[in-house]
Simulated scan of single mutants.
Amino acid sequence: MSGPNSDYDPVEVTPLKAEEVDAMREAALAAIATAPDLDALKHARTEHAGDRSPLALANREIGALPPQARKEAGMRIGQARSAVNQALAARQEVLEAEHEERMLVEETVDVTLPWDRTPVGARHPLTTLSERIGDVFVGMGWEVAEGPVVEAEWLNFDALNLGPDHPARTMQDTFWMEPADNAIVLRTHTSPVQARTMLTREPPIYVVCPGRVFRTDEFDATHSPVFHQVEGLVIDEGITMAHLKGTLDHFAASMFGDGITTRFRPSYFPFTEPSAEVDLRCFVCRGQEPAVQSCRTCRGEGWIEWGGCGVVNPRVLVACGVDPDRYTGFAFGMGIDRTLMFRHGAEDMRDMFEGDVRFTTAFGSEI
């Protein structure tokens, strides 16, 4: 820094000349105005407003001026530095606003997009199919009835005309609760719900009963000790097998598509008389030649076994307090697990119960 002068010497204070100060200011304002982002503005601030900037160094030269010249030079430098600082503040505000707008665009998160940080859950297909079946019958004016899975022996067997010597009562078919003297079982079918309904309601009765049942079956591709059934019961005046056939045809079409019908084959069940096995028209080949000959689903039969049905046995009506001379009815039962396998081509029943999420998520979260 130059030493103090007693006289004004413009040669020694060239940075303080008006044209030099104006040039420094214009250079600073130009650098600030053209700064494209906050990082560039930060560099311009250091270069033109920092401690080593031209204006800062020129400010230090004021002390070298004679007293009568310091005021004018100080005002010139001060005005220039003030203009630079104002330009910096204005440019800072503009660039920060642009930065925030850019961040809103570039870093926007679409909360409606799928995400995989936590896997999306899914409802079990047996649950959704049970509810779909219930909806079919509710749409026909029926009701959905439920009952306990731990059931009294009388409701599970006796009320349904399964006598004391019936083989279904043995340990080979039934899970008995201890102690055995209590005569409590895990229900082997959902028919006890039908018995409970007849005992607690007056006809007419139109109910469908989906739920879990238990039998001492092996756990393999087509059997499980825990599986799901849906049973239907109608008790009213003038009910015939024709009503049963029409109901099951509508049920079949709702599950497997328009045009799918059923047929009856004579059979025997203790709680219905007459009784029939229900076959389902093959929903793959539809029993049509020549596709039926090579159909792997029905194995060339054109029909698939689906469940059982029949007219409610008068003994069951009497046991449940219904007048058999006034009322008749029909009942049917199908496996929900088998229906699911038919509808979706599942080949192994174990996939439904082993808890592998890959099986469940394939069906989504249908409600």
Score class of each variant (00 low, 15 high):
N5L: 14
T190F: 05
R215M: 04
A331L: 05
S130L: 06
L244S: 02
G232E: 06
R52Q: 15
I260Q: 06
R299M: 13
T174W: 09
V322D: 03
E106D: 14
E305I: 05
E305P: 05
R212H: 10
P15L: 11
G302H: 06
R196L: 01
V21K: 10
W176L: 05
P54T: 11
V13T: 14
E131W: 14
F342W: 08
R45A: 13
V136C: 02
P54K: 12
P203K: 07
F271R: 09
A152M: 12
V111I: 15
A122I: 08
E366A: 12
P67A: 15
F330T: 03
Y327E: 05
P164W: 09
T339H: 01
G287V: 03
H166A: 00
G163K: 12
S130P: 02
G211L: 01
G121Y: 09
R286W: 09
A242D: 09
W303T: 01
H250M: 14
D220H: 10
M75A: 15
A168T: 04
T339K: 01
L248R: 08
A159R: 04
T46H: 12
I32E: 04
E354K: 09
E153K: 10
H189K: 08
A56D: 04
E237Y: 11
P54H: 10
R81M: 15
T200C: 05
L129A: 01
S191L: 04
L233C: 08
L129Y: 08
V149Q: 12
E277Q: 12
V230L: 04
E20Q: 15
Q293W: 15
V207C: 06
M140W: 13
T108R: 12
C295T: 00
T197L: 08
G355S: 00
D39A: 15
R358C: 00
A35W: 07
E305M: 10
L29K: 09
T128C: 04
G321I: 12
R102N: 08
